[in-house]
Amino acid sequence: MASETDIETASADLRHRLARQLEKDGWLRSPQWRAAVEAVPRHTFVPRFYRESDAPGVTTWEPVTPQSVGQEEWLRLVYSDETWMTQFGGRDIDWADPKPISNAVPTSSSTLPSLVVRMLEDLDVQDGMNVLEIGTGTGYSTALMCHRLGSERVTSIETDEGVARRARTALSASGYNPRLLVGDGRAGHPGGVPYDRLIATCGFRSIPPTWLRQVAPGGVILATLRGWMRSLGLVKLIVAGDSASGWFSEDDPSFMIARQQDAPESLGAVPAPEDGTTRRATYGPEVLTASGPAFMAQLAAPDARFFSMTVDGGPDSTFVLDSVTDSFAVLDPTDSGWQVRQGGPRRLWDAVESAVGTWEEYGSPNTAAFGATVSREKQVVWLGNPNGPHWPLPS
């Protein structure tokens, strides 16, 4: 096994190589963040992790440690531009005897470095600013901010005690000592206000109003908005008193949803065959998975989820269920397209088709054409400008 000196020598070379690649790809744009990437030892924050197996069949994750793949390969993987899973189902992993994991939901990870630095660059920090991070995770992004701003300028909140404990250990071992808290990130941390910047590394269904009170006027909130069906995307909001407004980025980075906002276990009641009213559908279930239309479907039906299954031996039907209002839509194939059967307080498929139709009328734009305005009273996503078509976010 290589010595600590050997590991540090090899990892320093890999960090510089990673920084060069991130700069070449356009993610690293400033010397300060490049210096942070070159200095912070990612291997300290992900000493062991899981990667997805390429074996066919059910999704399986396999453990990666220096012992299982060898020191050189482990370091190479650590410093590749990949996301590595570090927790499943909110439970700590027994690293004394790690086993492959199947049919599990990842609940903590080390995000791919290109997304980490892209968000940090977008945060537009300046010397002397105070930053609040929601979602410490492994602590790698926290360490980058500490290197850039100084530990005393960084506050980070993690909801999981075990994850927070490991991050604290890794940060301390790397020479960084930010203010680390365990709790619900939606509450922020009033003890450090005002913050000049707030960055969230987990997804939220809407922007917690508390954040508006804790970020200084003119400050930035950078967060991923997402729903129970999919991510909406990364939004950069400029705070103006009791409200904030800004634009989505043109791509769709997807973070795990904050645990306090995860979907209910029950999808909702599956309707009986005679429930609801039926009409011809303008769009089929493909709009739920195609990038642009799915963005619109998430906006139109924020409390819904969907799945497909065979009913009575026939072709697959797609069920869209709203577990909050008990509304439903069932899509069935016909000889000439699709029909939809709807019931409940909300006409789910009417709302989805209206939103997708509006998107098409505006030229089927990417997410950069959308923005959001949030206040304590209401939050909306709009298309084109704040006076354009808009859809409320869940409260």
Score class of each variant (00 low, 15 high):
P253I: 09
L393H: 06
G218Q: 06
T9E: 14
Q126Y: 15
Y176K: 10
V125D: 13
L180C: 03
S317I: 08
G276A: 02
D25Q: 11
P113A: 04
Y362R: 08
T59C: 11
P273W: 00
P47D: 11
S336T: 13
S102Y: 08
V105K: 15
T358E: 14
S375W: 09
L321I: 06
D54K: 14
D322E: 06
S110V: 07
S156A: 06
P100K: 01
A55K: 12
P178L: 03
T60E: 14
P386M: 04
G26M: 02
T325M: 07
A355C: 06
E152D: 13
A372C: 11
G241V: 01
P365Q: 08
W228P: 04
Y79H: 01
T136G: 02
P293Q: 04
D312I: 02
I101A: 03
T318Y: 09
Q87L: 05
H43R: 01
D335Q: 10
A297K: 01
S53L: 02
N387A: 14
A216R: 15
E72H: 13
D127K: 12
A10N: 03
T310L: 13
E73N: 08
W27E: 09
E250I: 11
A39N: 11
I257R: 11
D6N: 08
Y176S: 04
E161C: 07
Y283F: 08
T83K: 13
R51V: 15
V46K: 07
M85G: 05
G384I: 00
T107H: 00
F88I: 00
A173M: 06
E377F: 14
A329G: 03
A55E: 14
L232S: 00
P178W: 05
T358Y: 09
A216Y: 13
W391S: 10
G343Q: 05
H43A: 03
K24Q: 14
F319Q: 05
V125M: 13
G90N: 02
A164V: 02
G241E: 00
S102M: 10
R346T: 15
R17K: 12
T86Q: 08
D97Y: 06
P253G: 00
A329T: 04
P41G: 03
S3V: 09
V330W: 02
R165L: 13
K24R: 15
G185P: 03
R17S: 13
F328G: 00
A294K: 10
R347K: 14
V330L: 05
I257H: 05
L288G: 08
W349Q: 07
G175R: 08
T169I: 12
G268A: 01
L267V: 09
E4L: 12
E274Y: 05
Q260R: 11
Q342C: 15
T373Q: 14
S308N: 05
A294E: 05
Q32Y: 14
A104N: 08
T278F: 04
